[in-house]
């Protein structure tokens, strides 16, 4: 027999839960942001600790290692500068051709770097939190990427932080294109694989799809959220599903989000 005190506390909690479940979405997001704001000093402290640790590691590195890293960075910088020049030339050519065809002018995307401050506390979502918010111009639905490729899009945004919904989460669907075959599909959710969190299902490929392992997957630009041409991953395997109606493939994501500390938000 439950005591009266137990019943009262359960009733109060049930009532509170019902009120919270039925709140308008914007109000719930604001309350979440308010409660999440209580953790900001701790996140700041953790970031400062990480910076101190990193600088401590740098201070103890040998001169030889630092010189080697400097040489590597210089080489990489030169390669990137050449690629940037080629890219700029391609952009100019693209712009000229678009003008000739009378197509709409494309505005370039701007990048804003952000630091990952937290990851989802629940195991059934794939989200993380970054230190950019509405005061930095972030709004829901902006693409988020790292050096290796696309990782997701922004979700709920507060004044100083934003939620990033990662590829693989049911709330982040990405229209993609297999570069080698030109076939289009949609990145849906995480594969049933337990040990590899980078395996994502690519669905809605044509029935007679010719995708092969190792082929590269890029954003197609369809849907309007993600710009075309951002690398997403590589095909691992494929199978026929839905009684042969369409093909599904597993894609290994290019970016490993579990080790990511810095990301970039794309602004149109």
């Amino acid at each position: 027999m439950l005591k009266q005190q137990h019943l009262v506390s359960v009733a109060v909690m049930l009532l509170l839960a019902m009120v919270l479940f039925n709140l308008p979405e914007q109000v719930a997001i604001r309350i979440k942001a308010g409660i999440g704001g209580l953790f900001l000093p701790l996140f700041g402290l953790a970031a400062a600790g990480q910076t101190v640790l990193d600088s401590g590691v740098s201070a103890t590195m040998s001169r030889r290692t630092l010189l080697r890293e400097l040489a590597n960075t210089r080489t990489e910088n030169q390669q990137l500068a050449v690629r940037a020049m080629q890219g700029e030339e391609a952009l100019r050519e693209n712009e000229r051709l678009r003008q000739l065809l009378g197509w709409q002018k494309q505005s370039p995307w701007n990048i804003k770097p952000a630091r990952v401050i937290a990851r989802d506390t629940a195991a059934w979502w794939r989200t993380l939190r970054i230190d950019l918010g509405t005061r930095d111009g972030v709004r829901p639905g902006l693409p988020v990427l790292v050096r290796e490729g696309l990782i997701g899009k922004t979700g709920a945004v507060s004044l100083t932080t934003s939620e990033v919904i990662l590829i693989g989460d049911p709330n982040c669907r990405v229209a993609v294109l297999v570069r080698e075959t030109g076939e289009m599909g949609v990145m849906l959710g995480m594969s049933e694989g337990v040990f590899d969190h980078r395996l994502i299902d690519l669905s809605h490929l044509p029935r007679n799809s010719s995708v092969k392992p190792g082929q590269t997957v890029y954003t197609s630009g369809l849907g309007g959220v993600f710009p075309a041409g951002l690398p997403v991953g590589t095909i691992v395997d494929s199978r026929s599903v839905g009684h042969g109606l369409y093909t599904e493939a597993r894609v290994r994501l290019a970016a490993d989000v579990s080790k990511t500390r810095e990301v970039a938000v794309l602004f149109p």
């Binding site: 919270l20 719930a28 979440k32 937290a118 989802d120 629940a122 979502w125």
Partner: peptide, 9 residues
């Protein structure tokens, strides 16, 4: 819930 994508509460 505040630091997760869970519905609040």
């Amino acid at each position: 819930d505040a630091l997760s994508a869970n519905p609040l509460g």
